[in-house]
Simulated assay, not measured.
Amino acid sequence: MPLSIRRATLADAEALSAIAIATYTETWGDSYPPQDLHDFLQAHYSTVPQQQELADPRSAIWLLHEGDAVVGYLAAGANTLPHADAAEGDIELKRLYVSARHQGSGHGARLMDTFMAWLDHPQRRRLWVGVWEDNLGAQRFYARYGCRKAGEYDFIVGASRDREFILCRP
């Protein structure tokens, strides 16, 4: 069955929460103490924060579907990354995740291409992305879209601090 992409609506908050928690846990679940991970996921990816994000007119989220099941997503919105050059109107790619069993088939690039078409219409906007310093695959992926390292910051999950690179596409 071919996978389809569509823009998320407020009615998708529960499905978005489920895929956000599942893919974050699948990707980073072994990186943090269980209680820190649980608290982080509830604070950022449970249904209520997803409803708030979906209701924000500055946000845009796309879902990757396999039939009725959501198997990936891309979330973007107003930039919150700490950088001196950041300006009002800049957009941050906040999250791009595809379930492990659907990776390696170009679905992340399909989500990114859909997002980039939205980002640059009607005019090109500056893009910011935070990426873990050791996630070389993601850094190469975003470089293909014109993103270059512009800074660093700490990404905090409980007592853990991960060094993140701030990437920017002017």
Rank of each mutant, 00 (worst) to 15 (best):
I21E: 02
R140I: 02
L41D: 04
H44D: 13
V70W: 02
P33H: 09
E26G: 08
V98M: 01
H102P: 10
I91M: 05
M116H: 11
Y153D: 09
E53M: 12
Y142I: 07
E66T: 14
E133Y: 10
Y45G: 00
R144M: 06
R95D: 03
R125N: 02
S46M: 09
D134I: 09
P49T: 10
Q103H: 10
G130S: 12
H102T: 11
M112S: 04
I61M: 11
G104A: 11
H44I: 11
Y145R: 00
V129Y: 03
W62C: 00
L74S: 04
P82G: 05
D90Y: 03
A13C: 13
G89R: 12
H121L: 07
R7K: 13
R6F: 11
I61W: 01
K94L: 06
W28F: 11
P2F: 15
M1K: 15
A143L: 04
A76V: 07
A143W: 00
P122G: 08
D12M: 05
E26N: 10
Y73T: 04
I156C: 15
E92M: 02
H83R: 08
P57H: 13
R140C: 02
D90C: 03
A109W: 07
I91K: 05
R6D: 12
D36Y: 03
A78V: 11
S160L: 06
T25P: 07
Y24Q: 14
G29R: 01
G137Y: 08
T27G: 07
G151M: 03
H65S: 14
F141E: 02
C147K: 04
K94C: 06
L16V: 09
I166R: 01
Q52E: 14
P122Y: 01
D39V: 05
A150L: 02
S46L: 08
I5F: 07
G72Q: 04
R161H: 14
S31D: 12
A76M: 09
F155G: 07
D162I: 01
P34C: 09
I156G: 13
A60S: 14
D68M: 14
D30H: 15
G158D: 05
L10V: 11
V71P: 01
Q139T: 05
H107Q: 13
A43F: 08
P34G: 10
L16A: 05
Y97C: 02
G89C: 08
E14Q: 14
T47E: 13
Q123M: 14
C168L: 10
R101F: 06
H38W: 09
Q35P: 05
P57V: 00
P2I: 15
L96Y: 03
A69T: 11
L63C: 12
E53H: 15
W132F: 15
W62D: 01
S31E: 13
F115L: 07
P33M: 02
R124I: 09
V131Y: 01
D113S: 10
D90G: 05
H83V: 12
N79I: 04
R126K: 13
R169V: 02
F115A: 04
L136C: 13
R124P: 04
G158S: 11
V70R: 00
W128S: 01
V157W: 00
V131L: 03
C147E: 01
L37E: 02
R6V: 07
W62A: 01
L111S: 00
T23E: 01
Q50R: 08
E152A: 12
F115E: 01
